[in-house]
Amino acid sequence: MRAEAVRAGPATAIERRPASRTSTLYLFALPATLLFVVFVAYPILWVAGQSLYIRSGSGVSSFAGLANYVTVLGDPTFWIVVRNMLLWGVITIPVQMLIGGLLAYFIERHTHALRGFFRTMFFLPVVTSVSVISLVWVQIYAPYYGIAQEYLKHVGFVMMTSPIGDPKMAIYALILVNIWQWTGFSMLMYIAGIANLPSEVLDAARVDGARGWRLAVYVIVPMLAPATKSLLLLGVIGTLQTFPIVHLMTGGGPNRASEVFGTFIFKQSFVLGDTGSGAALSVIVLVVALVLSLLQIVTLGARLTPAGKERA
């Protein structure tokens, strides 16, 4: 009983110490806090402030209220971006989960000697520099000398132009590259989930007679829910920060058809030098990201850990 009482006491031994010594303990938390304040919190506040100002040609800023937001929301490109981002998220996230999940399932449950080999090979696109990947895919998609049009025409799929040069096709062509690059990540998350499934529960399912697809649907998929939730959360944030693939492959073109938030902000802020609307856009992306994340955390109990597992 006494032992219980001691254990239940406030955070046990280490916490209770004189105030003077406690204060030095805050040194543990100081560096992280400093980095956060200077390089995350301050820039966010600054950009929120700037979004309310307009800089004239002569470099003088004047308060403009929500004028920047009105301008941005009135820009037809903004709505192309919104559409593209929706497509991006709605296609990328489930497809990556599906392919990554299937790969993980077969690799983890049906291979032994080659398990490490498959895990590594499918993950390689994640560690290949995105700028290299983008240029390789430009070459793959290229008309005349690219291999996509050359090989796809044998299966009855004739491409007259490069898909990234076609306003209707461009965004899908980019999404394909993105899926290819990041599926290995989904796979690894599910591999962690599957490897950590309690083996006795799987035995119990076998005793209950669940095999094959029914084992997968009724037992394995629900038990991988934590990994799925983390992937959803990471997928939404990843979608909103899409930049290099689009910037390097189409530059948001042709005719802004494949513009995403990243390239749009980049153009407004650094090409056109319009920090006011660049700031307004940044704030919009930030708010969208926070709202979507919090929504998932509250409704789904999603966690941002790589293979977060619910506490039993």
Partner: peptide
């Protein structure tokens, strides 16, 4: 025709 009780109980956490 077997049924089994496991050491860790092995209950399905999502059901």
């Amino acid at each position: 025709g077997v049924a089994m009780v496991f050491q860790s109980y092995a209950l399905y956490p999502h059901m």
